[in-house]
Design a protein around this nucleic acid. Structure first.
Lengths: 217, 217
DNA sequence: GTCTATACAACGATAGAC
DNA sequence: GTCTATCGTTGTATAGAC
């Protein structure tokens, strides 16, 4: 439900990138953008975006170097496209879902689950974004930091609301929100560990909720 | 108390790297290794180890390219020296400190504080090691993963001991240990955030301890 | 022990044929 | 819309003077 298909995502990027993508036919462009983003996330997952060469990307996508440059005008622009679009989708879905909930306790639960399900559906994007942030140019780095603080603020606001309602008792809301973020991030940063131990996203979500509730209820 | 001086660390690396470092005079070698490691961690912190060129490193250390190659035989070897030595020191200090404690509750507290103080003293190393792991060659990557699991196991064992003693009640010890690790790691991965908010390492340590104890006591 | 100068490979990016 | 061929640049690494 949360996850758009990859094709829809690439269509959205294509629509929003008129002028960057030189290829005009939507059918062809969307199909190849899908290949390009998939391959970029896959290769970067193993050796980092900077170490990925465009020759790697050419081999993995089956497109020539020349063809790649019909979809972006520089390696940096490719990075920007991935960063920006991912952020936009995630922000939208997260806000949509939380709006549905009533009361702080339910909002906390929904926010936790939504964030974990999102990072499950787009785990490679989350991992990529986390790991590449420090390699971005200033302007993009600023956006990434804003994004981290934005998500944290969502949890801060829920915690504050809970305190006002009298359902939560929290000594230090900012640190509590930071801890929640750290626990959410571990899910996509340490996927190898959790998948090796056969922990499902549902198990992890319930565990985090229990841990936090033991602290604030 | 925990932190060796940088000079001592570099001396230890120098002693343990006979054959790698071509420079023979200890005084000169230790002084320059200090410059090299410092600069590598500093530059990598901003743009990643792979993006750091040896010309960058030359400029930052004041040594020529030729001189640098008297201290390592390839960029990869430099990376190995940093990874290996950091791991060794941290493992040693962590085990030393925990051995002093008696009983699970005290051990948990000591382990948390020690890990946080260590990651405070060597924060750039911790950050570097975390961020560069996926870019390492297979053999080094395996060591890094073993290291992650080793630290986690320290906490696992303490939690198990506490359950046997009857002082802790834990539904899922492995997930609890994983959560502790995630919270410890956030301290050095998000230094910008905590320092901006003027959170001290003592405050953070006490907060994490409170959070975990609320869950397991 | 450190320097300058340089070799050589690999990179990102482009031009022009198809 | 995609390809091949190639440009100029920049990277790691080394040789030999000092």
């Amino acid at each position: 439900m949360l996850s758009l298909s990859r094709e829809e995502i690439c269509r959205e990027i294509f629509e929003g990138s008129r002028g960057k993508v030189k290829v005009k036919k939507p059918g062809i462009a969307v199909k190849n953008l899908e290949k390009i983003f998939d391959a970029t996330l896959a290769i970067s997952h193993h050796k980092g975006f900077h170490a990925m060469t465009l020759r790697d990307l050419s081999r993995e996508t089956g497109l020539s170097m020349g063809a790649l440059y019909s979809y972006f005008s520089s390696k940096d622009e490719l990075l920007d496209m991935i960063e920006n679009q991912g952020r936009r989708i995630i922000k939208r879905v997260l806000e949509e879902q939380i709006r549905k909930a009533k009361g702080a306790a339910e909002k906390l639960s929904i926010a936790l689950y939504t964030h974990l399900y999102l990072s499950e559906a787009y785990s490679r994007w989350f991992y990529f974004s986390y790991m590449e942030t420090k390699n971005l140019r200033k302007e993009q780095q600023k956006k990434a930091i804003e994004n981290e603080l934005f998500t944290e603020k969502i949890f801060m606001d829920i915690l504050d609301e809970g305190c006002r309602e009298g359902v939560f008792t929290i000594a230090d809301p900012p640190l509590t929100a930071a801890a929640i973020k750290a626990l959410l991030q571990d899910w996509y940063l340490k996927r190898w560990k959790y998948s090796r131990r056969k922990i499902t996203v549902e198990q992890y979500a319930q565990f985090i909720l229990d841990l936090i509730e033991a602290f604030i209820l």
